[in-house]
Nucleic acid binder design. Sequence first.
DNA 1: CTTCAGCTTAATCCTTTCTTAAGAATTGCC
DNA 2: GGCAATTCTTAAGAAAGGATTAAGCTGAAG
Lengths: 230, 230
Amino acid sequence: MNGNTHILVVEDDNDISRLLCSVVRRGGYTAQPAFSGTEALIYLKQQPWDMVLLDLMLPGLSGEEVLNEVREHGAPPVIIISAKGDQSGKIAALRGGADDYITKPFDIEEVSARIDSHLRRVHRAANSAKPVTYSHKNLVLDPEAKTVHADGEPISLTAREFDILHLLMASPKKVFSKSNLYESIWGEEFLGDDNTVNVHMSNLRSKLAKAVPGEEWIETVWGIGYRLKP
Amino acid sequence: MNGNTHILVVEDDNDISRLLCSVVRRGGYTAQPAFSGTEALIYLKQQPWDMVLLDLMLPGLSGEEVLNEVREHGAPPVIIISAKGDQSGKIAALRGGADDYITKPFDIEEVSARIDSHLRRVHRAANSAKPVTYSHKNLVLDPEAKTVHADGEPISLTAREFDILHLLMASPKKVFSKSNLYESIWGEEFLGDDNTVNVHMSNLRSKLAKAVPGEEWIETVWGIGYRLKP
DNA sequence: CTTCAGCTTAATCCTTTCTTAAGAATTGCC
DNA sequence: GGCAATTCTTAAGAAAGGATTAAGCTGAAG
């Protein structure tokens, strides 16, 4: 989480607005106060928001109407913060599209925790969709697609070669001993007098060199093992 | 929403469990009660769940531990339902991965509304990401209708062949290992020396080739698996 | 009960990759 | 520079993975 998570705080009471904004900022997010329903609308149209904190009793436009408007512009989580303590209003808001409902007076720690909880969920969903790749200089490795590209050019590797490069790129600074490599990739004990890793290394290097001549990616650390060249 | 939305209700008090289950069922979902933390674990391992209602004070295994376990097995929303009214416990649970926290005694309408709210959100996310049909080059697969067309011509596939193609087309760049495929489609562990997948692949390829001669859609990645040919 | 489509198993052939081994090359140290 | 230890390269045989075909099995439909 970071400063470019934008939260719109819709609340007409000056003190409460300030309080909510400070909670948001202490959480590490960016807060934008809006003091009326109509002001909120302007912000909603201006940019996408990661979350909306919404008071229900607003001048200009009611919270319910703002809520409908939010749902038109994307699908950020909406937390209602309201003085309306009655159950029916709470239930109506939740059924009307809100993701959470907190009644005033609120506990600022709870508000903070609920904000984090909703954002964490959004992140979880976003991350599960995002492809994971490793990059090092002009090399890009995609573990899902099992592809390696150098300067955008695909390089065709065998399973073992790919595994070796994958391991190296997952920990760019670490030096891997032969027994490290062997045991990680082959899953069996490494018995000293084995030349297998060397050969695969050699093949891997020559394939990389053929793709981009004159550049070296894998470094031999004499007497210890291999690592990515910084 | 329908009967195949499965909600796990983890609550040791018999009366409350019954009450929660009836709320769930009145919402149109399937409820599965679990009366201890350890029982919950069994259900969690058995199948994926769309939501978990979780009491914090449980025999066998605490709610917090169950919560951690839930997060290992996918990412369904978790609503804590607890008699612990103290703010610190509430905040700890929310920070610990829970998506919502309701204190006993609860209003059943509110519980119902919060369940719906969380499920609505999950649906919203799922629908925005999932296409109704998959296309790749001149191949079109419709998961609903269970049909495949190449250049508009229908191709008749068996259930397994369809499932394989479906999986491949859902992640066009991903390489699927045989064990990936086997475990996704057959739902049981893959034990190395099996060439069932090979045979289905072969049949699938020959059917596709018969439909559009001279074109290849499925690529073998040696020693790793299969993927759609880019 | 029979039939049939589809799934699985088995046997065979073919392809690619892995490993082994031996000589060449490099590095670090005296 | 010379020597020993380590690493690199090469090539060929061994091994593993994959494709294809055919035959047996199974469960659902008629």
